[in-house]
Design a protein around this nucleic acid. Sequence first.
DNA 1: TTGTATGCGTTATCAC
DNA 2: GTGATAACGCATACAA
Lengths: 341, 341
Amino acid sequence: MDQKKITFADIAKYTNFSKTTISRYFNDPDSLTVKNQEIIAQALEDLNYQENKLAKIFANGKSEFVGIIIPNLYMHYYAEMLNQILNTYDEFGYKFLIFTSKHDVEADRKYLQELLAYRIEGMIILSHTIGSQELAACGIPIVAIEREDAYINSVNTDNYMGAVQGTSLLIKNHCDVLIHINSQVAENVPSYGRIRGFLDTCKERQIKHELILQDLGHSPQEINACMQQLFAYITHKYPNVKKGLFLSNDTHANTMLNIIFRKYGTLPDEFRLIGFDDSPVSGQAILPISTIGQQIDKIAHEAMSLLVTLMDERKKRRPKPQTALVHKNITPVLIRRETTD
Amino acid sequence: MDQKKITFADIAKYTNFSKTTISRYFNDPDSLTVKNQEIIAQALEDLNYQENKLAKIFANGKSEFVGIIIPNLYMHYYAEMLNQILNTYDEFGYKFLIFTSKHDVEADRKYLQELLAYRIEGMIILSHTIGSQELAACGIPIVAIEREDAYINSVNTDNYMGAVQGTSLLIKNHCDVLIHINSQVAENVPSYGRIRGFLDTCKERQIKHELILQDLGHSPQEINACMQQLFAYITHKYPNVKKGLFLSNDTHANTMLNIIFRKYGTLPDEFRLIGFDDSPVSGQAILPISTIGQQIDKIAHEAMSLLVTLMDERKKRRPKPQTALVHKNITPVLIRRETTD
DNA sequence: TTGTATGCGTTATCAC
DNA sequence: GTGATAACGCATACAA
């Protein structure tokens, strides 16, 4: 097909310029006469030149690569986040080298080394395995999204505010008792804010509430079994009162809704329900589920924007080392659908 | 943090070997004495060496990059496919450079050029915008997944077989009339096989059927409106007979199921329903939906496996140009859940 | 088993 | 405005 690639040397020979001039044509065209620009442009056409970014990177040290380590793409949240991050290419021009975490620190460390070997200029991390202190030691700008971030920058959903909004809505719906169902999240993870937001709001408003923290299973079957059991527990413990259920995410909310709906053929007034994430399932449920919508597009953009700032600083002749960490919060939006009034 | 990077030259100086020997330590360690291996290993530790793959790639011309152009990550099918492709890293070692298509030929051409500039060794394409003839002209191995593939290799779901299985199940369920609802897919796209499979099976089994091909909308609202209208049409046209509905995908099937379920509080015996894809929504529906499961993991693995074979061939001293295109089909699996007997 | 010399395709630093 | 030359960090003949 195409034999050996055309290089600046070929173009230089063809045009009787030097390689330097060809290089300048690409990096500082105005330093050439218009006429010579045209000559070179024509030569590029004639020889069918294809630029070699690897050589360019190698020569100037700017890889324009950003590394990503993300837990999986099975969960819509992560898939959409990656989607939005990839979309920043058109604005910032950085390419992404992506690894999915195997929830195994050693494997992730290997991926990290591989990324570093490719001279990534910065990194966005969503995986939880490697501690932020270890990450900070890499010596490149790093931005975390929804994970422990004690020693690195981060952009997160304002989980606390989201929980306050959701809890407040359930209170406005005149629920007698509020129940928050979640798994046992660590306190240093941003999403722990959902629990704090729920508790604070309930206490402040002096409303009866219960916090249920337990393993909710991983497979659909396990989740279903858990929700089934929790439904039995809740209906037995709180009969004849209006129950406001705040689930940790939309998948759990949907599972719970299905259990209730199958039993009553509707969502009885006795139950109000709210999820978290605004994932597709919340809108496609048998009854569209009210939820807290994370602004994934904004989070992705803020993360890349912050990262680009940090990477740019590092490219300067006398880069100031980053002094204070940045932890940015993005406010979520309450989405009222049919499982709340 | 870390000043300038350690290179082979530094290690060579430190150990009194030559750069060549250091290089060999990495690429052919057995050619060194065990003792010298240890000396170098120690030096690597002492100096905290970090390998530079960019330099390596540049020197030997093997980028170990595979390019991907994929429509989006919003649809679960694409997200999971990308997930599975990324997972092949552990087996094949290729890194991926990924772009999401903007459904704009010019934008996609730009991405393609960018990928080529990074000297990708091969490419997996799921985007539809660029014709396969143009892609074939790139001069690198390319494997298509579920798109027009006249001039390039491909790995696809056996859509025809999937449709045959689904249609047969509906027939086995004693449906009086079979209805396939799909959008107007082009005949040169693999998923058109679903339509052929449906029609052929119905004709062969001499069963009453109807093929509904129309724009089904893109937003959840549009889809819901379409399904609502189709439901009215179907119930009016086929009253008092058992209707077997074969929807083009699980999202559509779920929307239709919700409409039926909200109306009757159950899925009446008069309706049997089957979707396509085995996406999460099919299992999380108010009634778990029967569906045709695409073996995304297998497709991804086959695609990479094929691509690796082609890329390897090209690295040989006298590579044979690929003679015949490979078009591989992966059989889907029928998943019987609660919307069929 | 180890070393020398050269090449990979750009950019960067000086010259002119 | 343009050119010669030296990096950049590693791989690979070819020697020894």
